[in-house]
Amino acid sequence: MTNARSPSLPVAIVAGSTIIGVSLYLGLRAMQPAAQPTQALPSAPPAAGPPTMTGAPAPSASITGPTNAASTTPTVEQAPARPTGAALEALVQQQAQAALDALAPTLGSACWTPPGPDEPASVVLDYDVTFDPDGTLVMLGIGERRDAFRTDVASCLRGLPRPQLAIDPPGEHTRVVLALALP
């Protein structure tokens, strides 16, 4: 994030100062004799960087320029905000859990066997999954829980091809933990 933003800041500043400089130049040219514009040009460089950061008074003289220019710029519609952080995880969790629930009967028929006398009647396994920005499953770990587990069932599930869990592209690597209840 920081690295991505760093190069754009000076570019934006330089671009902004150029607009300011041109606006100021054109504005002064329209108002003043032709001999005067050269006085306006030196004011552009100070508006580019340090003065803005330090609050030096130089840029204030050119505010009229960019404000007028901005007012003629058409409004750009923004795309709907994409969830991030906890909201994104919650969304991915919901979609991936629904996909896993849909596969539960198939997984159960492939790996669940009638329990022995000392084995639990049902188990819950943890599917620790990570999706890439496109929504492709790139990591999978299948964990058991201490309160009720069947090692043979877990080993069978790990031996199956990765489940196809279809979700919307999250836009960034996202890890969630899903629950698979069997039978």
Binding site: L137, V138, M139, G141, G143, S155, R162
Partner: peptide, 8 residues
């Protein structure tokens, strides 16, 4: 014990 499936 269990393994983890990783795509790189």
């Amino acid at each position: 014990g269990p393994t983890v499936s990783v795509t790189v």
